[in-house]
Design a binder for these strands. Structure first.
Lengths: 214, 214
DNA sequence: ATTATCTATAGATCTATAGATAATGC
DNA sequence: ATTATCTATAGATCTATAGATAATGC
Protein backbone atom coordinates (compact mmCIF):
# COMPACT_ATOMS: atom_id res chain seq x y z
CA UNK A 1 0.00 0.00 0.00
CA UNK A 2 1.39 3.38 -1.02
CA UNK A 3 1.25 6.19 1.49
CA UNK A 4 1.45 8.53 -1.45
CA UNK A 5 -2.08 7.65 -2.52
CA UNK A 6 -3.41 9.45 0.56
CA UNK A 7 -2.81 13.11 -0.03
CA UNK A 8 -2.10 14.23 3.54
CA UNK A 9 -4.23 17.36 3.10
CA UNK A 10 -3.54 20.42 5.19
CA UNK A 11 -5.55 23.54 5.85
CA UNK A 12 -4.96 25.73 2.78
CA UNK A 13 -3.62 29.29 2.89
CA UNK A 14 -3.07 32.04 0.30
CA UNK A 15 -0.13 33.50 2.22
CA UNK A 16 3.39 32.54 1.13
CA UNK A 17 5.46 33.36 4.21
CA UNK A 18 5.31 30.28 6.51
CA UNK A 19 6.36 32.16 9.65
CA UNK A 20 3.62 34.66 9.10
CA UNK A 21 1.12 31.86 8.56
CA UNK A 22 2.14 30.27 11.84
CA UNK A 23 1.97 33.54 13.73
CA UNK A 24 -1.40 34.65 12.39
CA UNK A 25 -2.92 31.21 12.81
CA UNK A 26 -1.87 31.20 16.41
CA UNK A 27 -3.74 34.51 16.90
CA UNK A 28 -6.75 33.05 15.13
CA UNK A 29 -6.71 29.79 17.11
CA UNK A 30 -6.31 31.55 20.46
CA UNK A 31 -9.20 33.87 19.74
CA UNK A 32 -11.43 31.17 18.26
CA UNK A 33 -10.82 28.67 21.06
CA UNK A 34 -11.98 31.20 23.64
CA UNK A 35 -15.06 32.10 21.62
CA UNK A 36 -15.98 28.47 20.89
CA UNK A 37 -15.67 27.57 24.57
CA UNK A 38 -17.82 30.52 25.61
CA UNK A 39 -20.49 30.36 22.90
CA UNK A 40 -20.04 27.15 20.93
CA UNK A 41 -18.89 26.81 17.34
CA UNK A 42 -22.18 27.58 15.62
CA UNK A 43 -23.05 30.65 17.62
CA UNK A 44 -19.65 32.16 16.94
CA UNK A 45 -19.40 34.14 13.70
CA UNK A 46 -16.35 34.44 11.49
CA UNK A 47 -16.45 38.20 12.08
CA UNK A 48 -16.18 37.70 15.84
CA UNK A 49 -13.21 35.43 15.31
CA UNK A 50 -11.51 37.95 13.03
CA UNK A 51 -12.14 40.83 15.41
CA UNK A 52 -10.91 38.91 18.48
CA UNK A 53 -7.83 37.76 16.54
CA UNK A 54 -7.08 41.34 15.52
CA UNK A 55 -7.37 40.79 11.77
CA UNK A 56 -10.00 41.74 9.22
CA UNK A 57 -12.54 39.25 7.97
CA UNK A 58 -10.83 39.39 4.59
CA UNK A 59 -7.46 38.49 6.09
CA UNK A 60 -8.95 35.64 8.08
CA UNK A 61 -9.90 34.00 4.80
CA UNK A 62 -6.31 34.29 3.55
CA UNK A 63 -5.29 31.87 6.31
CA UNK A 64 -8.16 29.41 6.16
CA UNK A 65 -10.66 28.49 3.48
CA UNK A 66 -13.69 28.05 5.71
CA UNK A 67 -15.04 28.38 9.22
CA UNK A 68 -14.64 24.61 9.65
CA UNK A 69 -10.94 25.05 8.97
CA UNK A 70 -10.74 27.26 12.03
CA UNK A 71 -12.43 24.59 14.14
CA UNK A 72 -10.00 21.98 12.88
CA UNK A 73 -7.01 24.20 13.69
CA UNK A 74 -8.43 24.65 17.19
CA UNK A 75 -8.86 20.89 17.68
CA UNK A 76 -5.36 20.23 16.44
CA UNK A 77 -3.97 22.83 18.82
CA UNK A 78 -5.84 21.34 21.77
CA UNK A 79 -4.58 17.84 21.06
CA UNK A 80 -1.02 19.10 20.80
CA UNK A 81 -1.40 20.80 24.16
CA UNK A 82 -2.95 17.76 25.83
CA UNK A 83 -0.32 15.45 24.38
CA UNK A 84 2.46 17.76 25.51
CA UNK A 85 0.86 17.94 28.96
CA UNK A 86 0.61 14.17 29.21
CA UNK A 87 4.14 13.56 27.91
CA UNK A 88 5.61 16.10 30.36
CA UNK A 89 3.58 14.67 33.21
CA UNK A 90 4.76 11.16 32.43
CA UNK A 91 8.41 12.24 32.57
CA UNK A 92 7.80 13.78 35.97
CA UNK A 93 6.74 10.44 37.44
CA UNK A 94 9.48 8.62 39.30
CA UNK A 95 10.05 4.89 39.15
CA UNK A 96 9.03 2.40 41.81
CA UNK A 97 6.03 1.17 43.63
CA UNK A 98 3.60 4.04 43.42
CA UNK A 99 4.22 4.85 39.76
CA UNK A 100 0.76 3.93 38.52
CA UNK A 101 -0.87 6.18 41.09
CA UNK A 102 1.43 9.00 40.02
CA UNK A 103 0.68 8.43 36.35
CA UNK A 104 -3.06 8.57 37.02
CA UNK A 105 -2.63 11.66 39.16
CA UNK A 106 -0.62 13.54 36.57
CA UNK A 107 -2.99 12.60 33.78
CA UNK A 108 -6.07 13.61 35.76
CA UNK A 109 -4.45 16.94 36.59
CA UNK A 110 -3.91 17.55 32.88
CA UNK A 111 -7.61 16.83 32.31
CA UNK A 112 -8.47 19.21 35.13
CA UNK A 113 -6.36 22.02 33.71
CA UNK A 114 -7.61 21.49 30.18
CA UNK A 115 -11.21 20.83 31.12
CA UNK A 116 -12.74 23.42 28.81
CA UNK A 117 -10.70 22.28 25.84
CA UNK A 118 -11.50 18.60 26.28
CA UNK A 119 -15.17 19.41 26.60
CA UNK A 120 -15.01 21.44 23.41
CA UNK A 121 -13.65 18.47 21.50
CA UNK A 122 -16.42 16.20 22.79
CA UNK A 123 -19.05 18.71 21.73
CA UNK A 124 -17.85 20.06 18.41
CA UNK A 125 -16.01 17.19 16.68
CA UNK A 126 -19.23 16.38 14.89
CA UNK A 127 -19.25 19.81 13.22
CA UNK A 128 -16.07 18.95 11.31
CA UNK A 129 -16.04 17.65 7.74
CA UNK A 130 -15.44 13.88 7.61
CA UNK A 131 -11.73 14.00 6.70
CA UNK A 132 -10.90 16.14 9.68
CA UNK A 133 -13.20 14.43 12.08
CA UNK A 134 -11.21 11.29 11.32
CA UNK A 135 -7.97 13.08 12.09
CA UNK A 136 -9.29 14.35 15.39
CA UNK A 137 -10.30 10.82 16.40
CA UNK A 138 -6.82 9.57 15.46
CA UNK A 139 -5.30 12.24 17.69
CA UNK A 140 -7.58 11.14 20.49
CA UNK A 141 -6.19 7.61 20.10
CA UNK A 142 -2.63 8.86 20.11
CA UNK A 143 -3.13 10.26 23.59
CA UNK A 144 -4.55 6.99 24.90
CA UNK A 145 -1.53 5.43 23.16
CA UNK A 146 0.82 7.35 25.44
CA UNK A 147 -0.90 5.75 28.44
CA UNK A 148 -0.69 2.33 26.81
CA UNK A 149 3.08 2.75 26.48
CA UNK A 150 3.46 3.75 30.10
CA UNK A 151 1.32 0.86 31.35
CA UNK A 152 3.20 -1.61 29.15
CA UNK A 153 6.47 -0.34 30.61
CA UNK A 154 5.16 -0.86 34.13
CA UNK A 155 3.92 -4.34 33.34
CA UNK A 156 7.32 -5.28 31.90
CA UNK A 157 9.06 -3.94 34.98
CA UNK A 158 6.81 -6.02 37.20
CA UNK A 159 5.28 -2.92 38.80
CA UNK A 160 1.94 -4.03 37.41
CA UNK A 161 0.32 -7.46 37.29
CA UNK A 162 0.93 -9.00 33.87
CA UNK A 163 -2.13 -9.02 31.63
CA UNK A 164 -3.00 -9.48 27.98
CA UNK A 165 -2.22 -6.52 25.76
CA UNK A 166 -5.92 -6.38 24.96
CA UNK A 167 -6.83 -5.81 28.59
CA UNK A 168 -3.98 -3.44 29.08
CA UNK A 169 -5.28 -1.33 26.25
CA UNK A 170 -8.77 -1.30 27.73
CA UNK A 171 -7.35 -0.13 31.05
CA UNK A 172 -5.72 2.76 29.20
CA UNK A 173 -9.04 3.67 27.59
CA UNK A 174 -10.76 3.49 30.96
CA UNK A 175 -8.21 5.79 32.57
CA UNK A 176 -8.53 8.21 29.64
CA UNK A 177 -12.29 8.32 29.88
CA UNK A 178 -12.43 8.54 33.68
CA UNK A 179 -10.19 11.58 33.30
CA UNK A 180 -12.59 13.04 30.75
CA UNK A 181 -15.48 12.25 33.10
CA UNK A 182 -14.13 14.90 35.44
CA UNK A 183 -14.54 17.39 32.59
CA UNK A 184 -18.01 16.43 31.40
CA UNK A 185 -19.59 15.63 34.76
CA UNK A 186 -17.74 18.38 36.54
CA UNK A 187 -20.93 20.39 37.00
CA UNK A 188 -21.95 17.58 39.36
CA UNK A 189 -18.65 16.19 40.67
CA UNK A 190 -17.33 19.56 41.76
CA UNK A 191 -20.29 19.89 44.14
CA UNK A 192 -18.94 17.11 46.33
CA UNK A 193 -15.34 16.49 45.37
CA UNK A 194 -12.25 18.57 44.85
CA UNK A 195 -10.01 17.33 42.05
CA UNK A 196 -7.75 15.84 44.73
CA UNK A 197 -10.66 13.88 46.26
CA UNK A 198 -11.63 12.71 42.83
CA UNK A 199 -8.11 11.52 42.05
CA UNK A 200 -7.87 9.68 45.36
CA UNK A 201 -11.15 7.80 44.93
CA UNK A 202 -10.67 6.95 41.27
CA UNK A 203 -7.06 5.86 41.77
CA UNK A 204 -8.18 3.28 44.32
CA UNK A 205 -10.82 2.06 41.89
CA UNK A 206 -8.42 1.80 38.99
CA UNK A 207 -5.80 -0.06 41.02
CA UNK A 208 -8.50 -2.45 42.19
CA UNK A 209 -9.59 -2.87 38.60
CA UNK A 210 -6.13 -4.04 37.62
CA UNK A 211 -5.25 -6.07 40.68
CA UNK A 212 -7.67 -8.91 40.02
CA UNK A 213 -6.75 -9.41 36.39
CA UNK A 214 -4.83 -12.36 35.03
CA UNK B 1 -37.57 26.98 50.40
CA UNK B 2 -40.73 27.20 48.31
CA UNK B 3 -40.97 24.99 45.24
CA UNK B 4 -43.59 27.39 43.93
CA UNK B 5 -40.98 30.09 43.32
CA UNK B 6 -39.52 28.01 40.48
CA UNK B 7 -42.03 28.16 37.66
CA UNK B 8 -41.67 24.66 36.22
CA UNK B 9 -41.72 25.95 32.63
CA UNK B 10 -42.81 23.68 29.81
CA UNK B 11 -42.46 23.92 26.07
CA UNK B 12 -45.28 26.28 24.99
CA UNK B 13 -47.93 25.42 22.41
CA UNK B 14 -50.78 27.32 20.73
CA UNK B 15 -52.89 24.20 20.34
CA UNK B 16 -55.60 23.50 22.94
CA UNK B 17 -56.26 19.81 22.51
CA UNK B 18 -53.71 17.97 24.72
CA UNK B 19 -54.05 14.64 22.89
CA UNK B 20 -53.36 16.32 19.61
CA UNK B 21 -50.34 18.08 21.10
CA UNK B 22 -48.98 14.78 22.29
CA UNK B 23 -49.57 13.07 18.97
CA UNK B 24 -48.09 15.81 16.80
CA UNK B 25 -45.12 16.28 19.10
CA UNK B 26 -44.36 12.60 18.85
CA UNK B 27 -44.29 12.93 15.05
CA UNK B 28 -42.04 15.97 15.36
CA UNK B 29 -39.68 14.32 17.86
CA UNK B 30 -39.37 11.12 15.84
CA UNK B 31 -38.54 13.03 12.68
CA UNK B 32 -36.20 15.49 14.37
CA UNK B 33 -34.28 12.83 16.30
CA UNK B 34 -33.46 11.01 13.08
CA UNK B 35 -32.39 14.21 11.33
CA UNK B 36 -30.30 15.42 14.27
CA UNK B 37 -28.53 12.06 14.49
CA UNK B 38 -27.81 12.04 10.76
CA UNK B 39 -26.85 15.70 10.28
CA UNK B 40 -26.53 17.34 13.68
CA UNK B 41 -28.80 19.97 15.17
CA UNK B 42 -27.38 23.01 13.41
CA UNK B 43 -27.30 21.55 9.94
CA UNK B 44 -30.93 20.48 10.21
CA UNK B 45 -33.45 23.16 9.20
CA UNK B 46 -36.88 23.65 10.69
CA UNK B 47 -38.34 23.04 7.21
CA UNK B 48 -36.68 19.62 7.04
CA UNK B 49 -38.11 18.76 10.44
CA UNK B 50 -41.60 19.88 9.39
CA UNK B 51 -41.44 17.96 6.12
CA UNK B 52 -40.17 14.75 7.75
CA UNK B 53 -42.82 15.06 10.47
CA UNK B 54 -45.53 15.47 7.83
CA UNK B 55 -46.68 18.93 8.93
CA UNK B 56 -46.20 22.39 7.46
CA UNK B 57 -43.61 24.77 8.79
CA UNK B 58 -46.44 26.93 10.08
CA UNK B 59 -47.97 24.06 12.04
CA UNK B 60 -44.62 23.12 13.50
CA UNK B 61 -44.52 26.50 15.16
CA UNK B 62 -47.94 25.91 16.72
CA UNK B 63 -46.40 23.08 18.74
CA UNK B 64 -43.09 24.66 19.70
CA UNK B 65 -41.90 28.23 19.95
CA UNK B 66 -38.41 27.72 18.59
CA UNK B 67 -36.01 25.25 17.04
CA UNK B 68 -34.34 24.83 20.44
CA UNK B 69 -37.70 23.66 21.80
CA UNK B 70 -37.58 20.79 19.34
CA UNK B 71 -34.11 19.82 20.54
CA UNK B 72 -35.28 19.89 24.14
CA UNK B 73 -38.27 17.68 23.33
CA UNK B 74 -35.89 15.24 21.64
CA UNK B 75 -33.57 15.16 24.65
CA UNK B 76 -36.50 14.64 27.01
CA UNK B 77 -37.76 11.78 24.86
CA UNK B 78 -34.34 10.12 24.78
CA UNK B 79 -33.98 10.28 28.55
CA UNK B 80 -37.41 8.78 29.02
CA UNK B 81 -36.49 5.93 26.71
CA UNK B 82 -33.14 5.32 28.39
CA UNK B 83 -34.69 5.45 31.85
CA UNK B 84 -37.42 3.06 30.80
CA UNK B 85 -34.83 0.76 29.28
CA UNK B 86 -32.74 0.81 32.43
CA UNK B 87 -35.73 0.31 34.74
CA UNK B 88 -37.00 -2.63 32.68
CA UNK B 89 -33.54 -4.15 32.51
CA UNK B 90 -33.15 -3.86 36.27
CA UNK B 91 -36.40 -5.75 36.86
CA UNK B 92 -35.21 -8.50 34.57
CA UNK B 93 -32.18 -9.18 36.77
CA UNK B 94 -32.66 -12.03 39.22
CA UNK B 95 -31.40 -12.03 42.76
CA UNK B 96 -28.29 -13.79 44.04
CA UNK B 97 -24.61 -13.94 43.46
CA UNK B 98 -24.18 -12.72 39.92
CA UNK B 99 -26.62 -9.83 40.16
CA UNK B 100 -24.05 -7.09 39.73
CA UNK B 101 -22.76 -8.68 36.54
CA UNK B 102 -26.32 -8.91 35.26
CA UNK B 103 -27.03 -5.29 36.14
CA UNK B 104 -23.94 -4.15 34.27
CA UNK B 105 -24.79 -6.34 31.33
CA UNK B 106 -28.34 -5.07 31.03
CA UNK B 107 -27.28 -1.47 31.37
CA UNK B 108 -24.52 -1.81 28.77
CA UNK B 109 -26.98 -3.42 26.37
CA UNK B 110 -29.28 -0.42 26.78
CA UNK B 111 -26.33 1.85 25.93
CA UNK B 112 -25.58 -0.33 22.92
CA UNK B 113 -29.14 -0.17 21.62
CA UNK B 114 -29.45 3.55 22.23
CA UNK B 115 -25.96 4.44 21.08
CA UNK B 116 -26.97 7.11 18.60
CA UNK B 117 -29.30 8.80 21.05
CA UNK B 118 -26.76 8.91 23.86
CA UNK B 119 -24.18 10.34 21.50
CA UNK B 120 -26.64 13.01 20.40
CA UNK B 121 -27.10 14.15 23.98
CA UNK B 122 -23.35 14.41 24.52
CA UNK B 123 -22.97 16.49 21.39
CA UNK B 124 -25.95 18.81 21.37
CA UNK B 125 -26.77 19.55 25.01
CA UNK B 126 -24.67 22.69 24.68
CA UNK B 127 -26.99 24.03 21.99
CA UNK B 128 -29.86 24.27 24.49
CA UNK B 129 -30.81 27.45 26.34
CA UNK B 130 -29.56 27.43 29.95
CA UNK B 131 -32.86 26.48 31.63
CA UNK B 132 -33.20 23.38 29.51
CA UNK B 133 -29.59 22.40 29.56
CA UNK B 134 -29.97 22.27 33.34
CA UNK B 135 -32.99 19.97 33.01
CA UNK B 136 -31.16 17.64 30.68
CA UNK B 137 -28.29 17.36 33.15
CA UNK B 138 -30.78 16.59 35.94
CA UNK B 139 -32.25 13.81 33.81
CA UNK B 140 -28.77 12.46 33.26
CA UNK B 141 -28.34 12.28 37.04
CA UNK B 142 -31.67 10.54 37.49
CA UNK B 143 -30.43 7.67 35.35
CA UNK B 144 -27.25 7.31 37.38
CA UNK B 145 -29.60 7.48 40.38
CA UNK B 146 -31.32 4.28 39.27
CA UNK B 147 -27.96 2.50 39.35
CA UNK B 148 -27.21 3.97 42.78
CA UNK B 149 -30.46 2.48 44.10
CA UNK B 150 -29.66 -0.93 42.68
CA UNK B 151 -26.12 -0.91 44.06
CA UNK B 152 -27.36 0.23 47.48
CA UNK B 153 -29.85 -2.65 47.49
CA UNK B 154 -27.08 -5.11 46.68
CA UNK B 155 -24.82 -3.69 49.38
CA UNK B 156 -27.62 -3.99 51.96
CA UNK B 157 -28.29 -7.58 50.96
CA UNK B 158 -24.61 -8.42 51.39
CA UNK B 159 -24.21 -9.20 47.68
CA UNK B 160 -21.70 -6.38 47.47
CA UNK B 161 -18.89 -5.39 49.82
CA UNK B 162 -20.12 -2.60 52.09
CA UNK B 163 -18.73 0.82 51.23
CA UNK B 164 -19.40 4.47 51.97
CA UNK B 165 -22.36 5.97 50.12
CA UNK B 166 -19.89 8.40 48.57
CA UNK B 167 -17.90 5.60 46.97
CA UNK B 168 -21.02 3.73 46.00
CA UNK B 169 -22.20 6.78 44.12
CA UNK B 170 -18.89 7.10 42.32
CA UNK B 171 -19.11 3.46 41.25
CA UNK B 172 -22.52 4.22 39.75
CA UNK B 173 -21.08 7.17 37.83
CA UNK B 174 -18.22 5.01 36.60
CA UNK B 175 -20.56 2.31 35.36
CA UNK B 176 -22.72 4.94 33.66
CA UNK B 177 -19.77 6.51 31.90
CA UNK B 178 -18.13 3.22 30.90
CA UNK B 179 -21.45 2.37 29.26
CA UNK B 180 -21.38 5.70 27.43
CA UNK B 181 -17.79 5.04 26.42
CA UNK B 182 -19.07 2.25 24.23
CA UNK B 183 -21.14 4.85 22.40
CA UNK B 184 -18.53 7.57 21.99
CA UNK B 185 -15.48 5.39 21.37
CA UNK B 186 -17.43 2.84 19.41
CA UNK B 187 -15.72 3.85 16.16
CA UNK B 188 -12.61 2.36 17.75
CA UNK B 189 -13.93 -0.30 20.15
CA UNK B 190 -16.06 -2.00 17.54
CA UNK B 191 -12.91 -2.72 15.50
CA UNK B 192 -11.69 -5.20 18.12
CA UNK B 193 -14.61 -6.01 20.39
CA UNK B 194 -18.19 -7.07 19.99
CA UNK B 195 -20.54 -5.61 22.58
CA UNK B 196 -20.41 -8.98 24.35
CA UNK B 197 -16.61 -8.90 24.53
CA UNK B 198 -16.78 -5.37 25.81
CA UNK B 199 -19.26 -6.30 28.52
CA UNK B 200 -17.15 -9.27 29.61
CA UNK B 201 -13.92 -7.29 29.94
CA UNK B 202 -15.49 -4.26 31.60
CA UNK B 203 -17.54 -6.35 34.03
CA UNK B 204 -14.36 -7.98 35.33
CA UNK B 205 -12.81 -4.56 35.73
CA UNK B 206 -15.78 -3.11 37.56
CA UNK B 207 -16.06 -6.06 39.93
CA UNK B 208 -12.35 -5.75 40.66
CA UNK B 209 -12.86 -2.04 41.24
CA UNK B 210 -15.38 -2.75 43.96
CA UNK B 211 -13.81 -5.81 45.54
CA UNK B 212 -10.90 -3.99 47.11
CA UNK B 213 -12.94 -1.20 48.63
CA UNK B 214 -13.64 -0.79 52.33
C1' DA C 1 6.08 43.53 -8.82
C1' DT C 2 4.79 40.82 -5.24
C1' DT C 3 2.70 39.91 -1.06
C1' DA C 4 -0.47 40.93 2.57
C1' DT C 5 -4.36 43.41 4.19
C1' DC C 6 -8.61 45.86 4.17
C1' DT C 7 -13.57 47.42 3.16
C1' DA C 8 -17.80 46.67 1.25
C1' DT C 9 -21.14 43.51 -0.23
C1' DA C 10 -23.15 39.64 -3.11
C1' DG C 11 -25.57 35.83 -2.52
C1' DA C 12 -27.47 32.35 0.02
C1' DT C 13 -29.97 30.75 3.91
C1' DC C 14 -32.98 30.09 7.61
C1' DT C 15 -36.12 31.10 11.49
C1' DA C 16 -40.37 32.61 12.78
C1' DT C 17 -44.79 34.90 11.76
C1' DA C 18 -48.80 37.17 9.49
C1' DG C 19 -52.74 36.43 7.40
C1' DA C 20 -55.67 33.31 4.65
C1' DT C 21 -58.07 28.87 4.55
C1' DA C 22 -60.05 24.60 6.11
C1' DA C 23 -62.06 21.62 9.65
C1' DT C 24 -64.75 20.92 13.82
C1' DG C 25 -68.52 21.32 17.02
C1' DC C 26 -72.35 23.81 18.89
C1' DA D 1 -67.15 30.69 16.55
C1' DT D 2 -63.34 28.21 17.63
C1' DT D 3 -59.52 25.55 16.67
C1' DA D 4 -56.02 23.79 13.66
C1' DT D 5 -53.52 24.11 9.47
C1' DC D 6 -51.43 26.05 5.47
C1' DT D 7 -48.81 29.23 2.15
C1' DA D 8 -46.03 32.93 1.35
C1' DT D 9 -42.57 35.92 2.95
C1' DA D 10 -40.44 39.56 6.08
C1' DG D 11 -36.51 40.29 8.26
C1' DA D 12 -32.31 39.08 10.01
C1' DT D 13 -27.91 36.89 9.56
C1' DC D 14 -23.73 35.07 8.13
C1' DT D 15 -20.13 33.11 5.12
C1' DA D 16 -17.03 33.94 1.70
C1' DT D 17 -15.16 36.86 -2.02
C1' DA D 18 -14.15 40.69 -5.30
C1' DG D 19 -11.68 44.42 -5.91
C1' DA D 20 -9.14 48.34 -3.88
C1' DT D 21 -5.25 49.75 -0.96
C1' DA D 22 -1.06 49.46 1.65
C1' DA D 23 3.43 47.45 2.72
C1' DT D 24 7.65 45.08 1.35
C1' DG D 25 11.75 44.09 -1.21
C1' DC D 26 14.35 44.22 -5.42
Amino acid sequence: MHESTNQPQEVPTQVKNPDLVERRRRQIVDAAAKLFIAQGFHKTTTRQIARAAGVSIGSLYEYVASKEDVLYLVCEFIHKEVERGVAEAMQRTTVGKEVLAEVIREYFLVCHRMSDFILLIYQETRSLPAVWRKRVLENELRITGVLVEVLAGLADGGDLPAMSSEKLEMVAHNITVLGHMWTFRRWYMARRYSIEDYIRVQTDFIIGMIARQT
